[in-house]
Amino acid sequence: MQLKHYSLALLTILVVFFTACQDEEYALPTLEGGLHNDCIKRTLGPNVVGLNIEFAYAMALPKAEGKILSAQVEASIAGAPATYMEYRSFSTNGSGVDVPVTIGSPSVNSGTKTEVVFSKDTCAATLRYYYIIPEEARGKTVKFTFSAKASNGQTVSYEMGPYNVAKMDMKLDLVLSDNNNSYLSIADMAVYNAATAATKAASIDLVYLYRTYTTATFNHALVAPAASPDYKPGITLPAGVINSAKIWKVWALRDQQLARLQYGIFIDDLDFQQLDFAGAPDYAINLRAEAGIWVETADGKYRAYIYINKIDNTKKEMTISIKRYPMQ
């Protein structure tokens, strides 16, 4: 019995050693014939109307089998007129710089399709495709079919998506100033001076002001028109400007699309949906660059994130970028 067990253990060890020591011969991979393609999406973050979705579409076939004739992309929703496909194939050199090689004529948009016709005798190319998100795609999904044709009659295609297009809007680099354009409308995503604000009183959500005191820290502030006079000293509101927005102060939420900095943070539709403004105040004072505020308009129609790109104490100015989500 004991001998039998020893034999079994010995056999197992031998099998393990034999398997572990078996060496696989390396063989050069054989070139697969025919036209092939591949695609990657290069842009990150939410797809916002007006921004682009960038892809890199690669296609190739063995040189002996022919050349590429054309590349085409068909989107499920036609892109905005500025949509295009590169007619240059890029490769990255040793310094990390993208070097272009022209392979054909500039792309032509026709309805939902964008096509590049090759004029260079080439058997491999990687073309970038920039889909400019149109208004029609807001809140919908969009998908893409990339395809290529070769001179040997072969065609290939590659499906990408579907991708959600956000419902939110975006506006960059609005400049608020203490002595001029100090009224902000979330509905219009615009800043106004007092005279214009008086004509758009119902849509004014926030007032910008900059104050310095020796006894208290105030500095740059965004307050709702209905906020306590303590938080808008020296401000005489135009007639009818009475809205009461709800505000949450935020620090270090540097959305990449708003801040355009190195941080990989993106605010998407879902973030606005999940906000809870219960008990939120109607003012935010002592605001700093790279901080922000979540805002809900008085009528509850919009929620927005206002990112502070820059503050200027001398000019008494604040540069902001906004993402706005319609709640109704």
Binding site: A216, T217, F218, A221, D230, Y231, K249, G279, A280, P281, Y283, I285, N286
Partner: peptide, 8 residues
């Protein structure tokens, strides 16, 4: 600080 939202 002045203006602190002490409710939150």
């Amino acid at each position: 600080f002045f203006g602190t939202d002490l409710k939150n």
